[in-house]
Design a protein around this nucleic acid. Structure first.
Lengths: 114, 114
DNA sequence: GTTTGTACTGACAAAAGTGTCAGTGAAGAG
DNA sequence: CTCTTCACTGACACTTTTGTCAGTACAAAC
């Protein structure tokens, strides 16, 4: 029976990964950890990412309670995203992940094994 | 330019996630953290997973230096997998991820938001 | 009055990941 | 002689994720 990882899995690791997994989510969170940003600012700060993907990931992160969307309800629209209180609990985890990733990149670069 | 996440990304978060990302890798690592196991033991311990996926994930984990493959070169074959010295550096990271995941599951279960 | 910028949506195509199925070779059980 | 076990491989279908493209409303700039 094919089971999508995105379904609510009872495995805590899967649950966590389903929140940050997505081609650009790590990067988005990284940018926002320096403070709130507008949609277009975020987009310009990650040029390789398309607007479509940005918005899809933002919506998922909002749905998961990690980000908050502030809409000024003005014309032209002005929307700002920031990390929620709950989202901040995720940041130290990302830092742990990042620290290991840095070591791994060095290792891969050095061509080590074992 | 479509860029696969599996390519060597200079982002440490992506680098780390590319190692543990895969439908069953977390579970496999979890099982092996209790000690080495044979291929068929692993397979039986995770019944929802197919043999094909097990082997594909094992090979990736070996390639990334996380697991070690011990082949008894006997007939019938007997292959054991264990977490490498390097792989053990990953385990505390997985524990951090797991801890957050547990909190998240509770939160999702409770239907909280914000 | 055409263009630019804002924050989106919908339809669709391409790519990546996962699952299904059949088959390998040699030994042991029945 | 057939069936099972072991650890795998290859071909292929299906699902999910990512990317592309066009289009929305409205205002200010030119």
């Amino acid at each position: 029976m094919p089971v999508s990882k995105k379904e609510i899995s009872p495995c805590p690791i899967d649950a966590m990964l389903s929140v940050i997994d997505g081609r650009w989510k790590g990067t988005i969170l990284w940018r926002l950890s320096n403070g709130p940003m507008r949609t277009s600012e975020l987009r310009r700060s990650i040029p390789e990412m398309t607007e479509r993907m940005l918005i899809r990931h933002l919506q998922e992160l909002v749905r998961d309670g990690i980000l908050v969307r502030h809409d000024e309800r003005s014309v032209p629209p002005c929307v700002r995203y920031s990390i929620s209180k709950y989202g901040w609990t995720l940041v130290p985890v990302l830092e742990t992940i990042c620290a290991w990733g840095r070591v791994h990149l060095k290792r891969v670069g050095a061509g080590a094994r074992g």
